[in-house]
Amino acid sequence: MKIIFLIIFMISFTASASLCNKNDNIIISCKLNNGKFVSVCEKDNKVTYKYGTNDHIEMKFDSTKKNRIKYQDITYPAGGNTRIYFKKGSFSYYVFNYSTMYRENGITVGSAENNGVAVYRGNDIKFRQNCNSDVLIDYSPLNKMEKTEFNFDIDLIDSDNQ
């Protein structure tokens, strides 16, 4: 009985924590501080970005050959930074995941994670929301996406907006 409850709980949590369709692979998804969700989904080599609620998707962007959803990734000795992004008109949309561990004398003494969505127009940030709940992440579909050089000019790490 406990196993059945756990399975039902996991299915309902996954469904409510993502805007991805039932048969999609969830690349990254979370509930944001504003109560809405951001999700990047993949199915049959097609990547889709969604923003909104389960009742109303405010923005949906499908990757195409002409305008692809891409990613940037960099690893550090004690963490990493992954960004999934695309351009729509004069705006750049980023879904990001940053994690790091703090060590003293080789022993991990703490960690930090920063996840969310940000929208830029040029170098000016127009919108940013951090995740306020557990983040669903599976980066295995990234190999189906185009990887670009990491852009250090865009700083998505914002310790004041967590």
Rank of each mutant, 00 (worst) to 15 (best):
I4T: 05
I69L: 05
S92E: 13
V119I: 15
D134H: 15
T82F: 09
G80D: 02
L136S: 07
S133A: 11
S12I: 09
K46W: 04
I154P: 02
V117S: 00
D158E: 07
A17S: 11
Q72H: 04
I8C: 11
N105V: 14
N143E: 05
S159H: 10
K126F: 13
E58W: 06
D158L: 03
S12T: 12
S159R: 04
Y51W: 11
D138F: 13
T100A: 11
N33F: 03
F150Y: 07
V38Q: 08
I57Y: 02
R103G: 12
N105S: 12
Y51D: 00
G106H: 07
L32C: 09
M145D: 04
N97F: 06
S140Q: 08
S159P: 05
G116E: 01
T100S: 14
V40H: 03
N161D: 05
D55H: 11
S159F: 13
V135A: 07
Y71D: 00
I27E: 01
L136K: 05
F9N: 07
I11E: 03
K144M: 04
I154V: 09
Q129L: 08
T75L: 13
F61A: 09
M10L: 08
T14R: 11
N81Q: 09
N67A: 13
G35L: 04
G110I: 13
V119E: 14
R121F: 08
I157D: 00
F127L: 13
N21S: 14
K22D: 07
R103Y: 14
N34W: 10
D73S: 10
F61S: 04
S99F: 10
I74M: 06
S90Y: 09
H56L: 13
K43I: 15
N130A: 13
N21T: 12
D153P: 02
Q72S: 07
K50R: 11
E42S: 14
A15S: 08
F86E: 00
I57N: 02
F37C: 08
V40N: 03
T108W: 12
N97I: 04
M145V: 07
A112N: 12
D73Y: 09
N21Y: 10
Q162R: 05
C20Q: 00
M10K: 05
L142M: 05
Y120C: 03
G52I: 01
N151S: 06
N97Y: 06
P141I: 03
M101N: 12
T53M: 03
R83D: 04
A78E: 13
F61G: 00
N25F: 10
D73P: 01
N34D: 05
T53S: 06
A78M: 09
N33H: 04
I154A: 05
G110T: 15
Y51A: 02
T14P: 02
I26W: 00
